[in-house]
């Protein structure tokens, strides 16, 4: 363990959230629970990125009365990345949910094991 685990508390929590989302994805059979798990993983990565750009005591990167020095604002690049990321993860969620509806319409179940069993049966 390195020296700044407690100092990087936010990033440690985002890593723990990533693993919770990953465990959620692995352990649940219900499709909607898996999608929620994936969304939790997304958000935890965005939290990690934004924490990387945060600087103590610096304010929002909006130029106020002409002050344009570097040590007045936080790093704008991670929040630019995360902004695009949030909207992309919405479209991915919408895609996954529409696939879930189509699967449910055909197999009448949200349980992934059940669906894979019936898929194998039809394969015969």
């Amino acid at each position: 363990m390195g020296p700044n685990l407690w100092a990087n508390f936010g990033e440690a929590v985002s890593m723990i959230l990533f693993c919770i989302g990953f465990a959620n994805l692995l352990l649940h059979k219900n499709l909607i629970k898996k999608i929620i798990g994936l969304n939790i993983m997304d958000s935890s990565i965005y939290l990690f990125l934004a924490l990387k750009g945060y600087i103590n005591g610096h304010t929002v990167p909006i130029v106020v009365d002409g002050v344009q020095s570097v040590d007045a604002y936080i790093n704008p690049i991670p929040s630019g990345l995360v902004l695009t990321g949030i909207v992309v993860s919405v479209s991915v969620t919408a895609l996954m949910l529409s696939l879930t509806i189509r699967l449910y319409r055909r197999y009448q179940t949200l349980d992934l094991d059940e669906i894979s069993k019936r898929l194998k049966k039809e394969g015969l």
């Binding site: 363990m1 390195g2 020296p3 700044n4 685990l5 100092a7 990087n8 936010g10 990033e11 440690a12 890593m15 723990i16 990533f18 693993c19 924490l51 990387k52 945060y54 600087i55 103590n56 610096h58 040590d71």
Partner: peptide, 14 residues
Amino acid sequence: LLIAVSWLPRTGEF
């Protein structure tokens, strides 16, 4: 991941 995070520079530093 936690080991990696513990070696990262402290958040909030310039």
